[in-house]
Design a protein around this nucleic acid. Structure first.
Ligand code: ZN
Ligand code: ZN
Ligand code: ZN
Ligand code: ZN
Lengths: 138, 138
DNA sequence: CATATTTTGCAACACTGTTGCAAAATGTAG
DNA sequence: CTACATTTTGCAACAGTGTTGCAAAATATG
């Protein structure tokens, strides 16, 4: 794990610091998306709020993580499993939010559909967020 | 217009006040979705911030408007054109955000597709937000 | 018009996210 | 390992967003 973490950071040309190691570890251990606040808590109050913001921004820039917009207006973050690099994300999956347990997950195996738009509109990106009841809660 | 506004408010069992009239008028005049801040500005500094929040919340509760989640985490609001009542929204359309002019619109004529989820997941609601270039900008 | 109810504005507050800057940590090369 | 240049961190301060309690004002009702 520790090896993998350092490997990812170096490949992204990020210097290896405590906060980056710890936060990347959280992502690797978690199977669901995390809000900024979750990360702050889980990091164990060891790091300043500002450092968490900057670390997440760095991870986003490097394509290590991606954001998930939620209906309640709280951005969540999850690891990019596809080969996203330097801000060019190739994620093509939908996201699921459970209304019972509140968990947000990447459904990597479910691809976003192609949406046919009216004449004149050009699609660049499609975000699909499905809410309902997850596997565990049903 | 004034008639229509009072009609909508009364049908929703909302008392007719200046702020509700003004804000509902803004929605009826606008053909794109508005952020809270837009509404605050357009209402002409006549109303307190808190009043705008409470008015929007009342409109949401009554099914007069609906929210649109955006990737940059700024909720926008738009009129419900379908017959949504008392929080039971029947909107079934997708939303479009132009990356050039920044406008967010309801594409009422484009319905959300059915997404087939893995075994165990139950869908309650599907949000689709497409980003790209709008009719005007292309 | 008089009264009960609802809504508004204000003050205060909590939370979220950003910036500038000095101190600390990291990477690099001898 | 050490010295040095570069990057990152923590802190303080700040702007923006959203919420609550409460008294004053507006509205609905008869
Ligand atoms: Zn669940
Ligand atoms: Zn994802
Ligand atoms: Zn446009
Ligand atoms: Zn809409």
């Amino acid at each position: 794990m520790e090896e993998q973490i350092i490997d990812v950071l170096k490949k992204s040309q990020l210097s290896v610091t405590d906060s980056r190691r710890k936060i990347l570890e959280l992502f690797l251990q978690s199977d669901s998306a995390m809000a900024h606040h979750d990360i702050e808590i889980k990091a164990g109050e060891k790091f300043d709020r500002v450092t968490v913001y900057r670390t997440l921004q760095a991870f986003l820039d490097k394509g290590i993580i991606h954001t998930i917009p939620t209906p309640d207006n709280s951005v969540k973050y999850a690891l990019c499993k596809d080969n996203c690099e330097q801000g060019h994300h190739h994620d093509d999956h939908i996201h699921f939010i459970c209304k019972i347990c509140g968990i947000t997950t990447c459904l990597d195996e479910v691809h976003v559909p192609e949406i046919k738009l009216p004449r004149g509109y050009k699609t660049q990106q499609t975000e699909v967020v499905v809410s309902g009841i997850c596997k565990e809660c049903s």
